[in-house]
Amino acid sequence: SIVTKIISIVQERQNMDDGAPVKTRDIADAAGLSIYQVRLYLEQLHDVGVLEKVNAGKGVPGLWRLL
């Protein structure tokens, strides 16, 4: 499923980069989806406690990390 793919992308990127959070844009590119589509999935995963959003604010790139 797309959700499983997104989780594995975040996991893979974090492992490659010493646990650093992953940008929404990088996840979207790797999943082959638009940034808006991916954001909806990321928000859902956040709501159920799978991911945390590391930063927030208007015009700030979203950074995500697995919990």
Score class of each variant (00 low, 15 high):
Glu12Gln: 11
Tyr41Ile: 14
Asp47Arg: 15
Thr4Ile: 14
Glu43Gly: 06
Leu63Ser: 10
Tyr36Glu: 14
Gly57Arg: 07
Val50Asn: 01
Asp17Phe: 15
Ala56Ser: 12
Val38Phe: 01
Val50Gly: 00
Leu63Val: 05
Pro21Met: 05
Glu43Met: 08
Ile2Val: 08
Lys23Val: 04
Gln44Tyr: 15
Val22Asn: 01
His46Lys: 13
Gly49Val: 02
Tyr36Pro: 13
Leu67Asp: 04
Glu12Asn: 09
Ile27Pro: 01
Ala30Gly: 07
Ser1Cys: 14
Val22Ser: 05
Leu63Phe: 07
Trp64Gln: 00
Gly57Pro: 07
Gly62His: 15
His46Thr: 13
Gln37Asn: 06
Leu33His: 02
Leu40Met: 12
Val22Met: 07
Thr24Cys: 04
Ile9Ala: 06
Ser8Ala: 13
Pro21Ala: 15
Glu52Pro: 01
Val60Thr: 14
Val38Cys: 14
Thr4Arg: 14
Ala20Lys: 13
Glu43Ser: 05
Val54Ala: 04
Asp29Gly: 06
Asp29Val: 12
Val22Gln: 04
His46Gly: 06
Ile9Lys: 01
Val10His: 00
Leu33Lys: 02
Val48Glu: 15
Asp47Asn: 13
Val10Arg: 03
Ala56Glu: 10
Ile27Phe: 01
Ile6Ser: 00
Leu63Thr: 08
Met16Lys: 13
Val38Trp: 01
Gly19Lys: 05
Glu43Lys: 09
Gln44Ile: 12
Met16Gly: 08
Pro61Lys: 10
Asn15Cys: 13
Val3Glu: 06
Pro61Tyr: 11
Leu66Met: 10
Gly32Gln: 07
Ile27Gly: 00
Gly57Asp: 09
Leu66Gln: 03
Gly62Lys: 10
Asn55Phe: 11
Val50Cys: 07
Ile35Asp: 06
Gly19His: 06
Gln37Ser: 08
Val50Met: 07
Val60Gly: 15
Gly49Ser: 03
Ala30Phe: 04
Pro21Leu: 06
Arg65Pro: 01
Ala20Met: 09
Ala31Glu: 01
Lys53Gln: 06
Val60Phe: 11
Gly62Val: 15
Val60Lys: 15
Leu66His: 04
Val60Met: 14
Pro61Ala: 13
Asn15Ala: 14
Ile35Lys: 04
Ser1Thr: 10
Met16Asn: 10
Arg13Trp: 07
Arg65Tyr: 08
Glu43Gln: 11
Ala28Gly: 03
Ser34Ala: 06
Trp64Asp: 01
Leu42Arg: 00
Lys58Gln: 13
Ile35Gln: 05
Val38Gln: 00
Lys53Met: 06
Ile27Met: 01
Tyr36Cys: 09
Asp29Leu: 12
Gly59Lys: 06
Thr4Glu: 13
Gln14Ile: 04
Gln11Gly: 08
Lys5Ile: 08
Leu67Lys: 14
Leu42Phe: 01
Gln44His: 15
Ser34Asp: 10
Gly57Trp: 05
Asp26Ile: 06
Asn15Trp: 10
Arg39Glu: 14
Asp29Ser: 11
Val10Gln: 00
Gly32Glu: 05
Gly19Ala: 04
Ile7Thr: 03
Leu45Trp: 01
Lys53His: 05
Glu52Ile: 08
Val22Phe: 09
Glu52Phe: 04
Ala31Cys: 12
Leu51Pro: 02
Gly32Lys: 08
Val38Ser: 03
Thr24Phe: 02
Gly62Met: 12
Met16Gln: 12
Val54Phe: 04
Glu52Gln: 08
Ile7Gly: 00
Gly57Ser: 06
Asp29Trp: 07
Gly62Asp: 14
Lys5Val: 07
Ile27Trp: 01
Gly62Asn: 15
Lys23Ala: 14
Leu42Gly: 00
Val10Gly: 00
Gly59Glu: 07
Arg65Gly: 05
Ala28Trp: 02
Lys23Gln: 08
Gln14Lys: 02
Ile7Asn: 00
Asp18Val: 06
Thr24Trp: 02
Trp64Tyr: 02
Asp18Trp: 10
Ala56Thr: 12
Leu63Trp: 06
Trp64Arg: 01
Ala30Arg: 07
Leu42Met: 03
Asp17Gly: 14
Leu40Asn: 07
Asp26Met: 04
Pro61Thr: 12
Asp47Ile: 13
Gln11Val: 08
Ala20Gln: 11
Gln37Met: 13
Trp64Leu: 00
Lys5His: 09
Leu67Trp: 09
Asp26Phe: 07
Ile9Cys: 06
Leu63Met: 12
Lys23Glu: 08
Ile9Asp: 00
Lys5Glu: 06
Thr4Gly: 11
Ser8Ile: 09
Val54Trp: 03
Met16Trp: 07
Leu67Asn: 13
Gly62Phe: 14
Val38Ala: 14
Gly59Val: 04
Met16Thr: 08
Tyr41His: 05
Ile9His: 03
Ala31Tyr: 02
Glu43Pro: 01
Leu67Tyr: 11
Val3Lys: 12
Leu33Met: 13
Leu33Glu: 03
Val48His: 11
Leu42Thr: 05
Val48Tyr: 11
Leu66Glu: 02
Leu63Gln: 10
Gly57Leu: 05
Ile35Met: 12
Asp18His: 14
Gly19Ile: 03
Gly62Cys: 15
Arg13Thr: 03
Thr24Glu: 15
His46Ser: 13
Asp29Lys: 13
Lys5Cys: 10
Pro61Glu: 15
Asp26Gln: 05
Val3Trp: 15
Asp17Asn: 15
Asp47Met: 12
Leu66Arg: 02
Glu12Val: 08
Thr24Ser: 04
Leu45Cys: 01
Val54Arg: 01
Asp47Ser: 14
Leu42Cys: 07
Arg65Ala: 07
Leu40Ser: 08
Ala28Leu: 02
Gln44Asn: 07
Val50Glu: 01
Arg65Met: 07
Asp29Tyr: 13
Gly62Trp: 10
Pro21Asn: 04
Gly59Leu: 05
Gly19Tyr: 15
Ala31Thr: 08
Gln14Thr: 07
Gly32Arg: 06
Asp26Pro: 02
Ile7Met: 07
Ile7Val: 08
Ala31Trp: 03
Leu51Asp: 00
Ala31Asp: 01
Ala28Ser: 04
Asp17Ala: 15
Ile7Cys: 05
Ala20Thr: 08
Ile35Tyr: 09
Gly59Tyr: 06
Asn55Ser: 12
Ile6Phe: 02
Arg39Ile: 14
Val50Tyr: 05
Tyr41Ala: 05
Val3Ile: 14
Gly32Pro: 01
Ala56Arg: 05
Ser34Pro: 13
Gln37Ile: 15
Glu52Leu: 05
Val48Leu: 15
Gln14Tyr: 07
His46Cys: 13
Leu33Arg: 02
Ala56Ile: 11
Gln14Cys: 06
Pro21Ser: 07
Ile27Ala: 00
Asp18Cys: 11
Ala31Ile: 15
Leu40His: 10
Arg39Gln: 13
Tyr41Pro: 00
Thr24Gln: 03
Tyr36Trp: 12
Val50His: 03
Val54Ile: 10
Ile2Lys: 03
His46Glu: 10
Ala20Leu: 09
Glu12Thr: 11
Gln11Ile: 11
Val38Arg: 00
Arg39His: 08
Asp47Thr: 13
Leu40Ala: 10
Leu63Asn: 05
Lys53Val: 04
Ile9Gln: 01
Asn55Cys: 12
Glu52Tyr: 05
Lys5Arg: 13
Ile9Phe: 14
Pro21Val: 06
Gly57Met: 05
Val10Ser: 00
Ala31Asn: 01
Arg65Ile: 09
Ala20Gly: 09
Gly59Thr: 06
Gln44Phe: 15
Lys53Leu: 08
Thr4Met: 13
Ile6Pro: 00
Lys23Leu: 07
